[in-house]
């Protein structure tokens, strides 16, 4: 019964959606509304107005920076939500099933991870800082950092990974992005422009470009750190075993 209903629902949905597809403007046509409205300005003046050669970064951080602020807030909220669900406890000690794995710690994998880790971090820093001019940016770089921590945890276990990045440090770093947005936005307001304007109009015109670059850098860096740390925190929160017997397990 349930299956029949599900099939019927899905079929109805499919028919509706395919029907819409046949009505949509042809894909890739330069005359499409998507290519003729709004966007030409981004493409033509984006570099000059937003100060980034990567137009996507220009849209993400400048034209639609407010969306990005919301997005960053969503990421923080998701982490807070995970803590809310799984328990926030600032317990110094936690253990995870990977620490109790019967597979012995492998010297080869450990060494490999130790060798690769600096490269991952370096690469992610490159991605973060060079994101304004090439594909990349804070989110991508942050995700790379998170992947690095994941690798480390897989190799060395939860306890040792947790020791490296203490809880309170993570908590502080998590707020960098929103704090950055707030500061950059307020700087614009104090200067006499609107919130999230990457400029202080009351300063001289020459310094504007440098200022804008500095602000972008602050944001990119803040987001990069934050995304990396939140990925880490989510990983740790999901890994932490519930202490059912009430005994604290040392590492």
């Amino acid at each position: 019964m349930r299956k029949v209903l599900a099939v019927l629902c899905t079929c109805a949905l499919a028919v509706l959606l395919i029907y819409v597809v046949t009505l949509l403007p042809a894909m890739g046509d330069p005359d499409n509304p998507t290519n003729s409205n709004v966007v030409p300005r981004y493409l033509e003046q984006g570099e000059q107005e937003a100060g980034t050669r990567n137009i996507v970064a220009g849209v993400v951080f400048n034209y639609r920076g407010y969306d990005t602020m919301g997005e960053v807030a969503i990421f923080s909220a998701a982490l807070a939500g995970i803590f809310a669900v799984l328990g926030a406890g600032r317990r110094k000690i936690g253990r995870a099933f990977i620490d109790e794995s019967r597979v012995k710690f492998s010297f080869v994998s450990g060494t490999a991870v130790v060798l690769v880790m600096p490269l991952i971090i370096l690469f992610s820093i490159y991605v973060i800082f060079y994101g304004t001019d090439s594909p990349g940016g804070g989110f991508q770089g942050g995700a790379a950092i998170g992947a690095g921590v994941m690798l480390f945890t897989a190799a060395f276990g939860f306890c040792r990974a947790q020791e490296r990045i203490p809880h309170h440090v993570r908590i502080i770093l998590e707020s960098t992005a929103i704090g950055g947005f707030f500061l950059v936005g307020t700087a614009g307001v104090i200067g006499g422009a609107n919130f999230l304007t990457y400029a202080i109009p009351s300063l001289s015109a020459q310094s504007q470009t440098a200022l804008r670059a500095a602000m972008l850098l602050i944001l990119q860096f803040g987001i990069g750190i934050k995304v990396g740390v939140i990925c880490t925190s989510i990983l740790f929160a999901l890994l932490r075993e519930e202490e059912t017997d009430g005994v604290e397990h040392a590492c």
């Binding site: 998507t34 290519n35 709004v38 966007v39 981004y42 493409l43 984006g46 137009i55 996507v56 220009g58 849209v59 993400v60 639609r64 969306d67 990005t68 919301g70 997005e71 960053v72 969503i74 990421f75 989110f139």
Partner: peptide, 13 residues
Amino acid sequence: NPLPQAMILTAIV
């Protein structure tokens, strides 16, 4: 068009 890409970046997060 960079706008959908920016939107998806947000949506992916």
